[in-house]
Amino acid sequence: MSRRSAGLIAELRARIASFEGGGNIVGESASGVMPLGAPFDQALPGGGLRRNALHEVATVNYRDMGAGVGFVAALAAQFASAQPSAPLLWCEGGRGSLDMGGLYGPGLAAFGLDPARLVLISPAREVDLLWVLEEALKLGAFAAIVGEIDGRAKALDLVATRRLQLAAEEGGTPLLLFTGHESADASVAVTRWRVAAAPSSSPPRFAGQSLGLVGRPRWNAKLERCRGAEGGATWLVEWDVGRQKFSAPDRELGDSGIRREEMLELVG
């Protein structure tokens, strides 16, 4: 192992140790699935997303890149909520290739992902990013790991994704690989998602007055491929940050324009 690689591993271990209870959690996440909410769970084997697996997320078009990051953040928030004492690793890819800005803490918090739990790393090269992901997965110390890499990257080939899948199984940790608006040419990802932005729900109103809130984020999400099940289904889904679940939009609103359960929460 090179001195540079050893330094990266030492830095990761030090950051993990700074989290209370952030030791090895392989026993908690080495098996099972994470329920996502309806209607996804009906289509996924076991009723949810496998924990110890590689899951790839891409967008339909370039303009959906922001929505894609939000979808990944929602998935990461679900895994993080299941292990509240464990950190979450987010490896930011080269912003030049994906042409996006940096992560925005309040935006992540709006999806239920606490920025204080994030360990952020920005490897200089794509091959370094893949190496960091693989080694971090083997540690088994993260609630989830997110990696950003251009789906057209030469380093992201069948061998690389196979190594990532094996590392996810070894460490019992989910890897959410965001490939931008291009999928990897060859991948062993257990699931592959293709998402596009959709108009959000109407902002809640009460007694004809706006509450100054924004509507729930929505996506058109397609499960392109799923190991052990038939892919190809597409759903319109929205994110309920309070319940940390995806759901099909509820079109039956009260006369005030706000969902009945949300009205009860507001006045209760």
Rank of each mutant, 00 (worst) to 15 (best):
M100D: 00
G102L: 07
L108T: 09
F111L: 15
D114I: 07
A124L: 14
R125S: 14
R125Y: 15
E126V: 08
D128R: 04
L133P: 01
E134N: 11
E135F: 04
A136G: 06
K138E: 12
K138H: 08
L139M: 12
A141D: 04
F142P: 03
I145P: 12
I145H: 13
E148C: 06
E148H: 12
E148Q: 15
E148N: 09
G151A: 09
K154N: 09
L158Y: 10
L158D: 08
T161K: 06
R163S: 08
A168G: 00
A168R: 09
T173L: 06
T173F: 01
L175S: 01
L176T: 06
L176Q: 11
H181G: 03
E182Q: 03
S183N: 15
A186E: 03
V188G: 04
A189D: 09
R194N: 09
A196R: 03
A198L: 08
S200I: 00
S202Q: 14
P203Q: 05
G208R: 07
G208H: 06
S210Q: 12
L211E: 03
L211N: 08
G212A: 07
G212M: 05
L213P: 10
R216P: 02
R216F: 01
P217L: 06
R218T: 01
N220W: 11
R225V: 06
R227Y: 08
R227C: 05
A229K: 14
A229C: 15
A229I: 12
A229Y: 13
E230A: 14
G231P: 09
G232V: 01
T234C: 06
E238W: 06
